[in-house]
């Protein structure tokens, strides 16, 4: 069973949200989702500077067997994308909550349906 860090927030789409720190959150996909995808071979991320709305599909992650959308978990402006994960998508598998982060957003609005670690654990249990 992959870990689900206590300090992060989550979405039903298996993304994690860290922060905000100075108004900026960091977004990635969970280890549970990465395990389910298998080896990630390609990650397409939003452009830095783009404005995103919570729930929008803003990118995609491809593995050997499937492709999934990446959603914006919050609304705001994308301040930074992780070029390292674009260059080496396997970081999503090897370090989902660390070097495998995807992008950062200056938060204008946080939806009220983000999940706690406990709530997200229930989602993963239901899907396993």
């Amino acid at each position: 069973m992959s870990s689900i860090p206590e300090e992060l927030s989550y979405t039903k789409e298996h993304e994690w949200v860290a922060g905000p720190a100075d108004g900026v959150v960091t977004v990635g996909i969970t280890a549970f989702a990465a395990d389910a995808l298998g080896d990630v071979v390609y990650v397409q991320l939003p452009e830095a500077g783009a404005t995103v709305e919570a729930g929008d599909a803003v990118g995609e992650v491809e593995s050997t067997k499937s492709v999934s959308d990446i959603y914006a978990p919050v609304s705001g402006e994308v301040t930074e994308v992780n070029q390292a994960v674009v260059d080496d998508p396997s970081l999503v598998n090897s370090d989902s909550y660390g070097d495998g982060w995807l992008f950062r957003v200056r938060v204008e609005n946080t939806p009220d349906d983000l999940l706690t670690a406990e709530q997200y654990t229930a989602v993963t249990t239901a899907e396993s």
Binding site: G38, D39, V41, T64, K65, N93
Partner: peptide
């Protein structure tokens, strides 16, 4: 079995 670890 779909994969045991990394399918690559």
């Amino acid at each position: 079995p779909l994969r045991y670890g990394s399918e690559s």
